[in-house]
Design a protein around this nucleic acid. Sequence first.
DNA 1: ACCCTAGATAGATAGATGTCAATATAGAGG
DNA 2: CCTCTATATTGACATCTATCTATCTAGGGT
Lengths: 116, 116
Amino acid sequence: MLRAPLTERQSVELARIFKALGDPVRLRLLSLIASHAGGEACVCDLTDAFDLTGPTISHHLKVLREAGAIEGERRGTWVYYRVRPDTLAQLSAFLVLPGDIAPASEAASGAIGASA
Amino acid sequence: MLRAPLTERQSVELARIFKALGDPVRLRLLSLIASHAGGEACVCDLTDAFDLTGPTISHHLKVLREAGAIEGERRGTWVYYRVRPDTLAQLSAFLVLPGDIAPASEAASGAIGASA
DNA sequence: ACCCTAGATAGATAGATGTCAATATAGAGG
DNA sequence: CCTCTATATTGACATCTATCTATCTAGGGT
């Protein structure tokens, strides 16, 4: 959180995730997966969206996976990836500034009575 | 936003900011600046918090500045940096998933209509 | 068993990045 | 004007990264 200085350990862990998102291809992969019907996408769908070879896409997916941003599951011949909301919420929580009205972490973690 | 696939242009711009945050030192710098009294910190305060030389800190501040994450102002001998909330809000908005109850972008930018 | 497709891994290479020492610039104060 | 302190810039170097080609593994269909 930007309300208090990060410890060195916290900064290392968070930086790993931010770094994983610090590439245009990975960011587009993430948005393709997240916005895909059913919340998951098969690798074959993703590869077609880029002018890149399969191994390169595979590499980027691995970086996202190892950073905890996505998770994959094999079903038959295909592998399906989906976003891990908890990880993204962690980033969002960090970005909340001391002066902000409402903490974004609450919005991400679920129940807000007001809208019901 | 993770509700729709990013364009290539969008992904390049966003990735630049995420990449700037993808380093433990820069993340700690950002949190030190944001949590400092008055919302701004002098470079001399920041340098002391690390086992790094001045030029290295200067370099990291430059990366953050060029990514739009912070802005600096010289006052006399010292240079003071503060966070640019708009840029961080942009990241936070991207991290909102399709299924989320309330968009974090609204929370970050102020008014929450639902509660009124 | 055989082959075909989907995806991952390995190895190589060009380019980016984090760090430092040395040097330059900007103000403040004699 | 000279010097001292606070930052920034430059140049060098070791490491990391994005991408490719070639190869490997996993499942499905015939």
